[in-house]
Each structure stands twice: as C-alpha cells, then as structure tokens.
C-alpha cells in the first residue's frame, strides 16, 4: 500500500505562522517590560509563565504538535514528567538538609575567587 505523504502533512497557512511569530515578539517585549515592576516572589512565576506560553506556541504550532496526534506528542510531554520527577525528588533533599551536607553552624569557608567590593560601595549594573 502506498500512502501519499501529503495526506499526512498539514500545510499550515502562512497567517498562522505570522500570528505566532508576532505573538512571540509581543511576549518577549512583555517579559522584558514586566521587569520594571517588582512582584517580589512572583517575579520568577511571571517570567516562567510567559516563557511557558512562548514555549507552548513554538511546540504546538512551529513544531506542529497541534496537528501531530501520534506517539510523538506523548513522548515529548511524557518526558517532561520525568524531568519533573528529577526536579522534585532533588528538591525533597535540598531544602531539608544543610548546605554541602553539613549543618549551618559547621559551614566551612570557601575559597571564593570573587574579589569583594570595598565596604560601602555597591556595584551598579555594568551596563
């Protein structure tokens, strides 16, 4: 049996690609723009939420997972689960133990190559 490949591929309209392109640019602008406001602990969450949105657009439209309903989709999203396992089980350990495996009180001095600023002079952004 001979399947013609074009029956398997969706030719996406140019305007869809352009719309995604523009959205990605807008979201890049937004993610830079919101750094002007300090949301405290939410800075990270806002930045990650925008990044996830952008990533979703790239994966679903540019990489075609929206139309590709085969095992590829499960493979990709499934692998995120394994990354999450790694992340979360490491973080069962990290916050619950002393740094470098020793208690806070026994912290050893590290040989840091960083040259400290003279007292009282705070650095400004380099650029």
């Amino acid at each position: 049996m001979h399947d013609h490949p074009s029956s398997h591929h969706m030719i996406v309209p140019v305007k869809t690609y352009v719309a995604v392109f523009v959205s990605l640019l807008v979201l890049t602008f937004v993610t830079v723009f919101v750094t002007r406001f300090d949301f405290g602990a939410f800075n990270l969450i806002v930045a990650l939420a925008i990044a996830l949105l952008k990533a979703g657009l790239v994966v679903m439209i540019f990489m075609g997972l929206k139309w590709n309903k085969s095992f590829d989709r499960l493979a990709f999203f499934g692998s995120l689960v394994f990354l999450f396992i790694f992340f979360s089980l490491v973080f069962v350990d990290i916050p619950l133990r002393g740094y470098r495996g020793v208690e806070e009180s026994q912290q050893i001095n590290i040989k840091s190559p960083v040259k400290p600023f003279p007292k009282g002079t705070m650095p400004n952004a380099a650029h």
């Binding site: 394994f82 396992i85 790694f86 089980l89 069962v92 350990d93 619950l96 133990r97 002393g98 495996g101 020793v102």
Partner: peptide
C-alpha cells in the same frame, strides 16, 4: 527506576526525609 536513586545516598548526607 526513576524514583529510587536516592537509596545510594543514604549515608551521604542527604536529608533524612529524602
């Protein structure tokens, strides 16, 4: 198999809860 690696670290200073 991806959930169990920490049993190699029982005496390595990982947290007791982990």
């Amino acid at each position: 198999s991806f959930f169990v690696w920490g049993h190699h670290l029982f005496v390595s200073g990982q947290s007791d809860y982990a």
